[in-house]
Write a protein that binds this DNA or RNA. Structure first.
Length: 407
DNA sequence: AATGCGGGGTG
DNA sequence: CACCCAGCATT
């Protein structure tokens, strides 16, 4: 615990709280706490936990909160909403019910289980951590924050969540949700998008947390952030701790938290080539390890600097020849368009159809020898590889084209 | 401290 | 459309 950087924050002055400053003293000599004015921290915890006991959400990972269950749920919930996670969580635990089964899994099976969930390095890191647990902890999940945070893919938030929920350790799990709640609670105007301010919110959480029920406290803050204290359309007056919430008391809910804007995503244009062989199967390839959507499968994508219009198919033939050493026959007309938005990129994709000439039908062998992992698949059987959502959109556009053509 | 990394939900 | 969401690793 002594090496925990979160203890470096000593004292925090919160200005303009009902006309005076409130002082949070987070050093070894906690004293003079005026956070709640006439209220107390104990009152706050009791009111919050009473509300939580009566109104908590029934979530799958709350049914049997083993360390493994909590861990899987917390990794999935990183930057991902509860409703999205639930079906993935159920299926993942069915497929990989124990830490050992996760440690021993084939990477391709892991990717398939994570297909469509995004941030795919999460599941690879989780397997690395599972292997660490099996080897270095004899299969027993480490039980303290300081040990847990050293596992791959587990940072300050997730380590605190697991330590508090599964092992009852009094560490605040502070994510964007919690920072919003704490910001409104105490009227803190520090920009929550700046990493230098994060230790402030962790320190506040560690001070406020109910030491006897840390896991429930952390989850109560989450539930609060997803109900009455949402980012948009909040209902602060209905909050169980409205009487403690500075932003509500002063009618400034919308002013908190302060959060600077993100940069706009960069725009890219691609041509997607659906290359069919004699069996109507389509060429796909696995993306490189260090690329966006690493290890996932797509049809060949050819980037070009900006939007273009005519004569593209001649370029595609040349580019395919250069990249794959064969010349497909490319249809002149695009069969569809796809737009896909990532957090930091936007892709505009034009889809072209092509087929392999008989004399080139065996070129796949040469492709694999160039360490480009390739395969031929039916657009109606997507079970054999993990595809990112953008490829799912391309498959859909292709099937729509086939359907239209047959009518 | 800034950037890369997915995808879906919401007003 | 813009913004948000149970963040972390890397540089």
């Amino acid at each position: 615990m002594t090496n925990d950087s979160r203890e470096e924050v000593q004292a925090i002055v919160i200005e303009d709280w009902l006309g005076k400053s409130a002082i949070l003293d987070l050093g070894p000599n906690i004293q003079g706490v005026q956070v709640w004015g006439p209220q107390t921290n104990a009152n706050f915890q009791a009111d919050l936990l009473t509300w939580y006991d009566q109104n908590k959400r029934q979530l799958p990972w709350r049914m049997d909160p083993t360390p493994y269950h909590v861990w899987v749920s917390e990794i999935m919930l990183q930057q991902t909403q509860v409703d999205t996670v639930i079906p993935y969580y159920q299926h993942f635990l069915q497929r990989f019910p124990t830490i050992e089964s996760l440690a021993e899994a084939q990477e391709a099976d892991l990717m398939k289980a994570w297909e469509g969930l995004g941030y795919y390095s999460r599941v690879r890191n989780m397997q690395t951590a599972a292997q660490t647990v099996v080897k270095e902890f004899a299969g027993q999940f480490p039980q303290t924050y300081d040990e847990i945070i050293q596992l791959k893919g587990i940072g300050p938030y997730t380590a605190a969540a697991i330590a508090s929920i599964a092992f009852n350790e009094a560490k605040a799990a502070v994510d964007g949700n919690a920072m919003r709640v704490y910001s409104r609670l105490l009227g803190i105007s520090a920009d929550i998008a700046k990493s230098k301010h994060h230790k402030l919110f962790f320190a506040i959480g560690d001070y406020l947390i109910a030491k006897d029920r840390p896991g429930d406290f952390n989850q109560a803050i989450m539930d609060l952030g997803s109900s009455f204290e949402t980012a948009k359309a909040a209902m602060p007056l209905l909050s169980p701790v409205a009487d403690y919430t500075l932003a509500t008391l002063t009618g400034q809910t919308e002013a908190f938290p302060v959060k600077s804007k993100k940069k706009k995503p960069k725009v890219y244009y691609y041509d997607a080539l659906i290359i069919k062989n004699q069996q109507d199967r389509v060429l796909i390839q696995q993306r490189d390890q260090d690329q966006l959507l690493a290890k996932l499968w797509t049809v060949p994508l050819f980037s070009h600097p900006e939007k273009k219009d005519q004569e593209v198919w001649t370029n595609l033939v040349a580019e395919t020849k250069a990249k794959y050493d064969f010349s497909p026959v490319v249809a002149k007309q695009a069969i569809g368009q796809v737009k896909h938005v990532f957090s930091h990129q936007v892709w505009y994709i034009t889809i072209y159809l092509a087929y392999v000439k008989a004399e080139d039908a065996n070129f796949i062998r040469d492709l694999d020898q160039k360490s480009t992992k390739s395969d031929w698949v039916s657009a109606y059987d997507l079970s054999r590889h993990a595809y990112p959502t953008v490829q799912m959109k391309i498959w859909q556009a292709y099937r729509d084209y086939l359907t239209d053509k047959n009518q």
